[in-house]
Design a protein around this nucleic acid. Structure first.
Lengths: 222, 222
DNA sequence: GAGATTAGTGTCAGCCACTGACAGTTAACA
DNA sequence: TGTTAACTGTCAGTGGCTGACACTAATCTC
């Protein structure tokens, strides 16, 4: 019961005991080997056996570090989400909710590239994101994860605005609409060749700007 | 190459040859047995072997009718989506896009219960929907399917408005926001006890009504 | 510092979803 | 009525994933 797990998120310094460090190394080795193999030959065509062979551990060990094959692909994504949530909680209370989400998202994208988490380069991150978008099984998992995130975000928004998230539908509606648009931006980004973080930033802003107008009546008048 | 498959959607009369009818019956038997078993003991705890035992066919046959175990669970959902798209195409061109989507959705929900597709009762449909929402693997698949549907919808909307769907982001943005809210309504519906179609209708309208206001500035003023 | 404790790992055996190959059966059609 | 092609079953195999159990080595205790 005295498990002081490394909190799911990627490493953050703090060199602990020898055992702990060894674990960290194994985990990173698995993550790295997996992402490399995925990038080289695709997610579906990479077997867990290949990954564990590269790291020279047993298959059983792989499944002790990652709940399933999918989980490896989302290790990085997870840290981006954490950054988003952290930034969202930090936004000034005076900021309207939609604006706060927008800024938090842009902040998360920006910080993604700079901090090469667990020795994973920004380039590899981008490639992983594109792989997720283009692999049906991963896309499905990605969307399911988004649902969980949306729930947390709507809780934060409700709290910011001092509302009861159960009773008032606005936080959830706003988050649903927002994340719908965010996903669209990510999707389009994935199809590009010039897949820098800048392009993603731009796409995000561009599409969020169209949300308000898109809801109102006659587009032909615009 | 002369496959005149029954179009994916559930049967629509037209008694063809003996062979065709036998196929139809096998498919429906598998569908029915599967949904019953899913409802009785849950999706995950039902094996394909159990399903094929109930119908007395080989496992191989099951996989010739359904691409995978998930596909059975979505057989009904698929017909709802078809109804939605059909109705959307039918909406008068004068109607603003958001209004057209809203009406088409309500129409699809309504027609869902009345026509007990392929001998699947409305009650079983509702239970299946709730099962999808509460089973992680199915939820993931559901969301992925939604993405495909969203794409089609945005094509229709763009066409209605005479826009280039590639260049103008408004159709996709509108659809993304709309379907985000629709999913939210479905999600909340699934958590209810009084899971009639009426409740779903009501939830849908209620949340769509909040979309506009939720986007604009200060909620505390509302 | 020796021994008890326990976290981390490997091995093995097995379940389940899913697939390819091939052969048998039977409706459809000439 | 025989040929063709569709549908199905059987079999063998792959890949993701899990439980049980034993072993090794880091950590703790005295």
């Amino acid at each position: 019961m005295t498990r002081r797990q490394t909190s799911g998120v990627l490493p953050c310094g703090a060199p602990a005991g020898l055992r702990e460090r060894r674990k960290q190394r194994t985990r990173e080795a698995l993550l790295h080997a997996a992402l490399d193999l995925f990038a080289a030959q695709g997610y579906e065509r990479t077997t867990v056996d290949e990954i564990v062979e590269a790291v020279e551990v047993s298959q059983r060990t792989f499944f002790r570090y990652f709940a399933n094959k999918e989980a490896v692909a989302f290790a990085v994504q997870e840290s981006v989400e954490t950054r988003f949530l952290t930034e969202l909680r930090r936004r000034p209370a005076a900021e309207p909710p939609f604006e706060a989400m927008r800024r938090a998202a842009l902040h998360a994208w920006d910080s993604m590239a700079e901090a090469a988490e667990g020795d994973v380069t920004g380039e590899l991150q981008a490639r992983t994101y594109r792989m997720i978008e283009s692999t049906p099984a991963l896309l499905a998992a990605h969307l399911r994860r988004s649902v969980d995130l949306e729930f947390q975000v709507s809780q934060v928004i409700a709290e910011r605005e001092g509302l009861d998230p159960e009773a008032d539908p606005r936080p959830r509606v706003a988050v649903a609409a927002f994340s719908g648009v965010m996903r669209l931006a990510g999707q389009l980004w994935g199809r590009r060749q010039d897949a820098g973080v800048d392009a993603l930033r731009q796409l995000t802003e561009h599409h969020l700007d169209h949300l308000g107008p898109a809801l109102s009546g006659n587009w032909r008048a615009a």
